[in-house]
Each structure stands twice: as C-alpha cells, then as structure tokens.
Amino acid sequence: MDLKFLVGIFLAAILTENYVLNKFLGICPFLGVSKKLDTAFGMSCAVTVVMVIATAVTWPIYTYVLVPLGLDYLQTIVFILVIAALVQLLEIALHRYMPPLYNSLGIYLPLITTNCAVLGVTMLVLEKGAADPNFGYVASLVNAFGAGIGFLVAMVIFAGVRERLELSDPPKFLKGLPITLIAASLVAVSFLGFNGLVDGLLG
C-alpha cells in the first residue's frame, strides 16, 4: 500500500470532502453540540472513535459475508444494527473500565447511533471501494479516521465562530438558529477554498 495514496485519502477526507461542510453528514451535532469548545471537542472525539470502529467491523461483514451470500441488499439494516450494538458495547466497556473517559465522552455515545455521519462513512467507503479496486480495507480505515478528524476540525472551528457570535448583535429577524446557519455557510465557503489542494500537494 502506497503511503502517499493513504496520506492523500486522509487529507482529502479532512479538507476537500469534509463530511459536515461538503457532504452535509452529521449536521445535527454540528448545530446542536457546537456551542462550547469542550463539548464540541468531546463529541467529535467520540464520533471519530465510533467511525473507525464501525468501519473496521462493517467492511469485513459486507465484503466477506453479505456479498458472497448475495445479501448485499440487507446492507442498511445490518449496518445500523451493527453500529447500534457497537455503540452500546463501547458505552458499557467505557463505563466499566475507564470511568474518567466515560464521563467526558460517554455522554455523547447514545446520540451517535443516529448520527448519519457514522452510517454515511461506512457506506461511502464501500462505494469508493467498488469504484476503485486499490481502495481496500486499510484505505477505508484511513478514510474513516480522516472523516472523523474532519468532523473535529469543522466542529472546533465552528465552536470558535459561535463563541464570537454569542457576543454579537444580529438583526432580530435572524437571531438564534438562522444566524448560526449563515455563519455555517461562511465557514463552508472557506472550505471551498481547499478544492484541488490535495491533488496539487501530492499530484
């Protein structure tokens, strides 16, 4: 496996294919949990962990169980159940063995089952794998990790923006959620600037 290929996937997942700002996956936590920097950070770490573990489990299930048996149409049901079970297991394990970590990250875990970014990443890496035979298990894991880090970057940047927004005085018409979405739109514009950057760096 070419290292340059993997670095390219990782950087692309963070910058040009940012799951929140370019693909609109995981908007709910992006708008809901980004009010404070520390909760935004905790949530993103939990999402990253679940994304990598979920991809690590669903990829072999799809490739070695569902496809050979001709059951690939069951993908949606199987994946969501696997993710729900994983999240539950992770919560129990953290609660039992790592209470400090549970207290900081565990509270976000139940919300992650219905986070579309997690289900999205497990399906999108399979789509990429079908289009490009080089895109195997390791590449999928790197992509999932990059997607999680991209989520973290977007959340942390946006938490900073929102802390400033709290102090500002927008028009009454836009107060609350609308001005938050318009701020998100401006952050998304800045991420458009990364288009083509990864190919330029590594190409």
Binding site: N22, L177, P178, T180, L181, I182, A188, L192
Partner: peptide, 12 residues
Amino acid sequence: PPGGFFVFGILI
C-alpha cells in the same frame, strides 16, 4: 454547500 446553509437559515 454554502448556499444550502444560507437558504436554510433564511427559510428558518
């Protein structure tokens, strides 16, 4: 994507 966020904000 930015247009999506913007239109959604205005509609809300």
